[in-house]
């Protein structure tokens, strides 16, 4: 197992250096530099197609970058499968469309990775899963199938599923944008509580500005594959520097 050497606590949790990526001729990510501290909460926003999803998907190598370096907790992502596996064991991800496994019950969704990846005994994995289901406030749904739950409940299960691998980093890719308006709050509540009660490092692509204000240490604005501006939430929203940021903020705040 390619475990990282114990990292000094001031070493960055995630480090991106001059990361570049192309889809054919299309330059999706241009010279991305980003250093994320342990326990830091980052919100990423930007117009559609600006490369937000691509960037965070590179962090657990659902996408491969073609130039530059990505280091997660001291492990650099290369073609080495063992390093990729090691990083994925420590990085949980929540998707826009939940991506729960429809053929497994909620409980089985949660215990799958602990049993097959961490090799935890079943009873222990189930106990941990129940603990997380209680944290996302749906323990009574444990034996239902995902198709029987509402969108908000499904997304909370997906968050619990990612937490069950006991990750050091959580990636969220627009976790609330596929939800009906009345369900957005229940998911955001769970995420805010997670931020308050644990020290997991969070990277969240979202346009929920209220969430960004209450949770984020830093807001990053991306446009055309570049990080255009980054700042604390207060500064970012009240004094945007870049013209593109101003335009974007005026558009989303107009709604």
């Amino acid at each position: 197992m390619a475990t990282a050497v114990q990292q000094p606590s001031d070493a960055p949790m995630i480090l991106l250096e001059k990361v570049n990526k192309w889809y054919g001729d299309f330059h999706v990510l241009t010279d991305i530099d980003l250093s994320v501290k342990r326990g830091e909460r980052i919100v990423i926003c930007g117009p559609s197609g600006s490369g937000k999803s691509t960037m965070i998907r590179c962090i657990n190598r659902l996408e491969e970058h073609q130039a530059g370096r990505i280091v997660v907790d001291g492990v650099e992502l290369t073609n080495d499968v063992r390093k990729v596996d090691a990083v994925r064991r420590d990085v949980g991800m929540v998707f826009q469309h939940f991506n729960l496994f429809p053929h497994l019950t909620v409980l089985q969704n949660l215990t799958l990775a602990p049993i097959w990846v961490r090799k935890t005994p079943k009873a222990e994995a189930e106990a941990t899963a129940m603990k997380y289901l209680e944290r996302v406030r749906i323990p009574e749904q444990a034996n239902k199938f995902p198709g029987q739950l509402s969108g908000g409940q499904q997304q909370r299960v997906a968050i619990a599923r990612a937490l069950c691998i006991n990750p050091k980093v959580m990636l969220f890719d627009e976790p609330t944008s596929a939800l009906d308006p009345e369900m957005v709050a229940e998911v955001l509540d769970v995420m805010i509580k997670l931020a308050e009660e644990s020290n997991v490092t969070m990277l969240c692509v979202t346009h929920e500005m209220g969430f960004a204000r209450s949770v984020a240490d830093r807001v990053i604005f991306m446009d055309r594959g570049q990080i255009v501006e980054q700042n604390t939430p207060e500064e970012f929203f009240s004094h945007p520097q870049n013209e593109r940021t101003k335009l974007f903020l005026s558009q989303i705040l107009a709604h």
Binding site: N60, L62, D85, R88, R89, V91, G92, M93, F95, H97, N99, L100, F101, L112, A113, W116, V117, R161, A162, I165
Partner: peptide, 18 residues
């Protein structure tokens, strides 16, 4: 079977075979 299923599974650390 959507791509999202494979991605969710890989992101949990399961191997391609699993």
């Amino acid at each position: 079977v959507g791509k999202g299923q494979t991605e969710a599974s890989l992101s949990l650390g399961l191997t391609k075979g699993q």
